[in-house]
Computed example of a mutant assay.
Amino acid sequence: MGHKWFVSAPMCDAFLVLAQAPGGLSCFLLPRWRPDGSKNPLHIQQLKRKMGNVSNASSETELRGAFAWMVGDEGRGVRTIIEMVAMTRYDCMIGSAAGMRQATAQAIHHASHRHAFGARLSEQPLMQNVLADLAIESEAATTLMLRMARAMDHQGNEHERLLSRIATPSASTGSVSARPTTLTRQWR
């Protein structure tokens, strides 16, 4: 398959890659191990130095003679990989909403059982504000995630298809990730 300038998460056991096929750019599933148990020739050339999500490694990779299965139709690789990325982004929305819900439940439980200044934390006005903000943001994330599920389930409807196409990428990278920083500052 050749040289890949950018491979996300090179520690994984399988990769979706785009490569030229006779019918045009196509999507392939490239496993780390071949079906016979031998290592697939995936050689990491170097890790990328990047800004942003540095905890998720990215690398330049050489794939000379690598084995892979075609995913989707030949020549429709970009369309195939975009559909799969949309599902991955939706998975991120589910995980974020679930994490927020669990964090909110734990914060409320903790505040209901911890005493400070002669009363439960949950009875303190400022803590009530923080807990209310957490609950509202958690409900909003859950509602958005469920709305996107509906849109993804009704792709035959043009409005739902367009909504999922536009909203899923923005919702999976939205303000959910910024919330813990705000909370840390408020709780100090």
Results as ranks from 00 to 15, higher is better:
68 A>N: 09
60 E>C: 14
93 M>H: 06
130 V>Y: 11
85 V>W: 05
95 G>Y: 14
114 R>S: 06
85 V>N: 08
89 R>S: 10
127 M>P: 01
109 H>R: 02
120 R>V: 07
64 R>Q: 14
104 T>G: 07
89 R>K: 13
85 V>K: 04
82 I>R: 05
113 H>W: 00
117 F>G: 15
88 T>G: 14
60 E>H: 14
137 E>Q: 02
96 S>H: 12
76 R>K: 15
130 V>I: 15
120 R>F: 11
99 G>L: 07
123 E>D: 15
131 L>Y: 04
132 A>Q: 07
93 M>W: 00
104 T>S: 10
119 A>D: 10
120 R>Q: 11
131 L>M: 12
110 H>E: 05
80 T>Y: 03
91 D>N: 14
137 E>M: 04
97 A>F: 11
108 I>V: 13
67 F>M: 13
96 S>T: 08
78 V>L: 02
62 E>C: 12
115 H>T: 12
92 C>P: 00
63 L>D: 09
112 S>L: 05
90 Y>S: 03
76 R>Q: 15
86 A>Y: 08
71 V>L: 09
109 H>D: 08
127 M>Y: 03
98 A>I: 08
80 T>S: 05
111 A>Y: 00
85 V>L: 06
137 E>H: 01
135 A>V: 03
104 T>F: 02
107 A>N: 05
130 V>M: 12
107 A>W: 02
86 A>V: 03
120 R>L: 14
102 Q>C: 10
74 E>F: 00
70 M>V: 05
99 G>A: 12
103 A>I: 06
111 A>Q: 06
77 G>F: 03
107 A>Q: 02
83 E>G: 03
104 T>C: 12
124 Q>N: 13
118 G>C: 07
129 N>S: 12
109 H>V: 00
117 F>P: 01
129 N>V: 11
95 G>I: 07
77 G>S: 03
68 A>M: 12
106 Q>N: 08
73 D>E: 15
124 Q>Y: 05
131 L>E: 12
109 H>G: 04
129 N>G: 10
99 G>T: 08
131 L>R: 08
129 N>E: 13
111 A>S: 09
133 D>H: 00
86 A>K: 10
129 N>Q: 14
97 A>E: 04
76 R>I: 00
115 H>D: 10
78 V>I: 09
89 R>V: 02
116 A>G: 11
60 E>R: 13
